[in-house]
Amino acid sequence: MLKTRVIPCLLLKDNRLIKTIQFGEYRNIGSYIAAVKVFNARDVDELVFLDMSASLEGRDPLYHLISDVARECFMPLAVGGGVQTLDHIARLLGVGADKVVLNTSALDHPEFITQGAGRYGAQCIVVSIDVKKTDRGYEVYRDHGKNPTGLDPITWAKEAESRGAGEIFLTSIDQDGMMKGYDIGLTKSVAEAVSIPVIASGGAGDLNHFVEVIRDGRADAVAAASIFQYTQYTPQDIKQHLIKSGIPARL
């Protein structure tokens, strides 16, 4: 039986490991190498590593840095931030990433999803969708939550799927860093609209949040960051709780 993945998410800005709240209020929380080593020692299911600076500054991914990170990972590593060309994908896979996460580049050039999936396989291509709640309903935002796109997340997720994306990484900007729970409604609507796996992100603060977003939000996998930084909970605690709640997880 397929186990639900619990995926720590690490965010980098200016070479520093940071945490955000609602995509703002950047807190520098320390050494990213230490964080990767801790998660590797914890035998986590997978790791997502996003370089915010690369996308905001429009520069190339930091291959040396990703190489250092990959060296410490013996589980699947998804890398995002500034991935804009097939060459970027090739080089990231070459330094040890297993999947790439596309956000801005997919919004700007949806055909890039198809090109990437075609060359490297759909399983390598994760499309990241950041969503904010507005008076008009849910809206996809770009540039790390700064600018609205006018797109609704379901439509965009379906397009990403049809273009060849292997997975969707769905983040609720409103819930990010708040540790009050995921956006269940948002997750459910996207998860039910596509037949590719959806990873829920943004809001985890205690063990029950994970059960809720999987059981009620239909998430196929869960990502989290704040809970590992600010509480005593480890990925094992979360997975044990999932199993107790009848959700298969890998210990």
Partner: peptide
Amino acid sequence: EFGGLLGNRTDD
């Protein structure tokens, strides 16, 4: 949060 645990926990 501030005790210098660097993300690692006792149970780890």
